[in-house]
Design a protein around this nucleic acid. Structure first.
Lengths: 331, 331
DNA sequence: CTGAAAGCGCTTACAG
DNA sequence: CTGAAAGCGCTTACAG
């Protein structure tokens, strides 16, 4: 690799002068600048980012900690984060933690040693104390960590309310909720929203613990529908568990949506690949990714934040697993 | 951050000695070692990876270039790559190129400036010349770049052969192939495998260009099935296009698999979430990721490679979209 | 406007 | 066995 020294020699100036034209700061004569630029071109010189990092203590890298990129909610999120980061000149290091504290700490340590400029946390082992002593900009995404850490979430509770009301409006009289992991704020909020609406309207309901696992959802829904044949609506805590519910309904030969209606949560791409396509609460996944990068960059640049909690609105996506959308409506 | 100097001062030795115990090389007295270790603990010292990188010209990072992490084939691949990399002490930088040469070059440049140790290329704009002048270890994954770049692919041709034969064995008499992008080696190989089998066996067939896009596949298959109602089997070039075919069949109220049978290619997770679950050619995704990291590390460590072409076997995954699997078989 | 020098935090010959 | 010194490739006060 050619270095700044080579360029300086070629242009007949000092390395300081080369550095000045590289960074467009300090005075440089037109003459010198021309020679340096020519030398850079001639030698195809690219400044060494590592040396710069060593001096500036800032690497232009951000760490993205997620549970598992193979979980279909995260690729879309990661994609939008990476896009914005690239635009802002940052590079993204991908870290799959499986929500294990050990892996999380291993990553954080490795990232800190590399002078990453900040972290986006979309994972949580449940214990977050160590992030406070981190002395590193951190943004929580789709998770709540603490009040002094900027948080980007979608409006899970209202999304859940809307979904539940939609099921009621479409005629459901006994609604099950497939509840995500207890203690995980988004799952808890969706549960709350569901509960509020069914209780306000006096609709029969039942809660099933499925986490966010498709197999678990499939098994539990099969059991549920056998035990309670009058269940005619399911509000799943995620699109993945909604897919599990659809499989269960299909196995029991219950038609969707005429016999049983299903609403998911997330709005990930594969919901549209299902048959019928999945009615769901669309999270603003792209905006969530964008906002979290923007906040992180503000933190990195030590600009003041207007707000520490960013709750983005969800939208109902009416498709084939509920009535009244015009699609797949067989009633 | 505490530095090696702080540790040296605390332990009453020189920085050289601290460095020696850090790297376990050179002679250090028991006494000195004890003091240094104690100082490291007391100060919670972590060596600065950037300074090390500057000296060694090796960063412990590898770049992963893929078209789009939101394309459901890549998350599983990225996950296995990241897992193996972590075990081997490497960190993965995620780069979505959209198969655009410009983005690709922008990334490669940024990564080189950061002294990444190597690149895994699972993307291709079609033009690869610039990788030869790169002077950086590179492995091609799911792509062929050139003979002197180690390549990891699955046995696409044989996988396609097996899939096609399976359709024939299950009684198909007119088979369509949804062909992936022309010029992309894996898509071309699958097409070749399909063509060989249908020609050997004299089965009626038709080729439809769908790329790897679900909407395109859905539209084209609808048109196809109207125009050629006797088509009773579809070999899709990917699981995503298979999902498109399933949607089309459903719209036309053609039962799967009794009226039309479908086989996908890839074996990504969501195939099992469909109803009926998708019969497909399973690529050894995890092994592909593992192998590519192993090869890259061998290259980085300048160890000799036994082979430059690694073709991993696929397996038929019999599920509900073809007959004879025992699942969803309604004939 | 420009260059010599110190420093970012390490590692490793080289002397001793 | 140990330390002083040079060097990895930059940047930026400081003098001039």
């Amino acid at each position: 690799m050619t270095t700044i020294k080579d360029v300086a020699k070629y242009a007949n100036v000092s390395v300081a002068t080369v550095s000045r034209v590289l960074n467009q700061k300090g005075y440089v004569s037109k003459e010198a600048e021309k020679n340096v630029t020519a030398a850079i071109d001639a030698l195809n010189y690219k400044p060494n980012a590592i040396a710069r990092t060593l001096y500036h203590k800032t690497s232009g890298m951000i760490g993205l900690l997620i549970p598992d990129i193979a979980n279909p909610f995260f690729p879309e999120l990661a994609r939008s984060i990476e896009d914005v980061a690239l635009k802002k000149g940052y590079t993204v290091v991908l870290c799959n933690t499986d929500s294990e504290l050990g892996k999380e700490q291993q990553y954080v340590r490795a990232l800190q040693q590399k002078y990453v400029d900040g972290l986006i946390l979309a994972t949580g082992s449940g214990s977050y104390e160590h992030y406070h002593s981190l002395d590193l900009p951190v943004v929580a995404l789709d998770r709540f960590i603490s009040k002094d850490i900027p948080t980007v979430v979608s409006d899970n509770k209202n999304g859940a309310r809307t979904a539940t009301m939609h099921l009621i409006e479409q005629g459901c009289r006994f609604i099950a909720h497939l509840r995500g992991p207890k203690g995980l704020a988004p799952a808890d909020d969706r549960y709350e929203g569901f509960k509020e609406v069914v209780e306000e309207s006096g609709i029969a309901h039942i809660i099933v613990e499925t986490g966010f696992h498709i197999e678990k959802a499939e098994d539990e829904v099969q059991r549920l529908l056998k035990q309670h044949p009058s269940v005619d609506g399911i509000f799943a805590g995620s699109d993945v568990t909604a897919a599990g519910a659809m499989k269960a309904a299909h196995t029991l030969k219950l038609d969707i949506p005429s016999r049983i209606q299903i609403v998911g949560f997330d709005g990930i791409l594969f919901g549209d690949m299902l048959v019928p396509s999945l009615t769901t609460v669309q999270q603003p996944i792209v905006e969530m990714g964008e906002r979290s990068v923007e906040l992180l960059v503000q933190l990195i640049e030590k600009k003041p934040l207007l707000s520490y909690r960013h709750e983005l609105p969800t939208t109902m996506k009416l498709r084939g697993t509920t009535k009244g959308s015009g699609i797949d409506d067989k009633t």
